[in-house]
């Protein structure tokens, strides 16, 4: 069974006089352990699509089925809890909680999940070491570089042991060295723990690393290819 199944997904923004059809009829399936890039020029609907898959935004039409469940049927509390337990988010602008240190940002997610203090402490250390910034555990996001913040964000996304991670242009604000390092790290997580990654990008370096490449044009899938690496 596929981990994510998307059927006939549509999104129309009606905020202005002219309705904007950001996503127009997407059907897709993602399998466990896939490392997928959604590509396409700015404005093609990548963010809108990922937001709907992650339950942050409601489709105008169509369904998002995760592990056999239609997420539209969840209450708002259930949806938040569902995201907490199953989905890791990485945002283009990192979006760490500025008043918490790197370690606390990661521990916070586990605290929300009700994990014990001991488990949190161990896992935070472990995760920060895996993303290569173990020594930054007590530093607040404001004192970290963009690359370092995005590593913390990935560690935070991994903290809850999610089934899959949604990352919206995670490298858009990073230089090429930081981009390569982040990609190495994500690929390693994917291999090691079989975590499903879906990320959007229009960065060629990222595209080069993807194992499946989905191209969006004007809110529709125009290409879907698998690449053996």
């Amino acid at each position: 069974m596929s981990i994510i199944k998307i059927e006939n997904l549509h999104k129309t923004y009606n905020e202005t006089q002219v309705p904007v059809h950001a996503v127009r009829g997407i059907d897709l399936e993602f399998q466990e352990g896939e490392f997928t890039a959604i590509v396409g020029p700015s404005g093609c609907g990548k963010t809108t699509f990922l937001n709907m898959v992650g339950g942050l935004d409601k489709p105008s039409e169509g369904t998002v089925i995760i592990e056999g469940k239609d997420i539209a049927l969840l209450s708002s509390r259930q949806l938040i809890d569902y995201r907490l337990q199953n989905i890791g988010f990485v945002f283009q602008s990192y979006n760490l909680i500025p008043v918490l240190t790197a370690g606390e940002n990661i521990a916070f997610i586990m605290e929300l999940q009700g994990k014990s203090k001991k488990e949190r402490t161990e896992r935070v250390k472990d995760l920060l070491e895996q993303v290569g910034i173990g020594e930054k555990i007590d530093v607040r996001p404001g004192q970290l570089s963009g690359g370092q913040q995005q590593r913390v964000a990935v560690a935070r996304a991994l903290a809850s042991k999610p089934r899959f991670i949604l990352a919206d242009e995670p490298t858009a604000n990073l230089d090429s060295k930081a981009t390569e390092e982040l990609l190495d790290m994500m690929a390693e997580m994917n291999r090691k723990y079989n975590i499903t990654f879906v990320f959007s990008t229009h960065d060629q370096r990222v595209i080069n690393r993807a194992e499946r490449l989905i191209t969006l044009t004007d809110g529709q899938v125009t290409e879907d290819i698998s690449i053996d690496r």
Partner: peptide, 14 residues
């Protein structure tokens, strides 16, 4: 507001 949206996205109940 943005920070709050992030916290809700990653699993903090309202």
């Amino acid at each position: 507001r943005r920070e709050m949206a992030v916290m809700i996205s990653v699993g903090l109940q309202r």
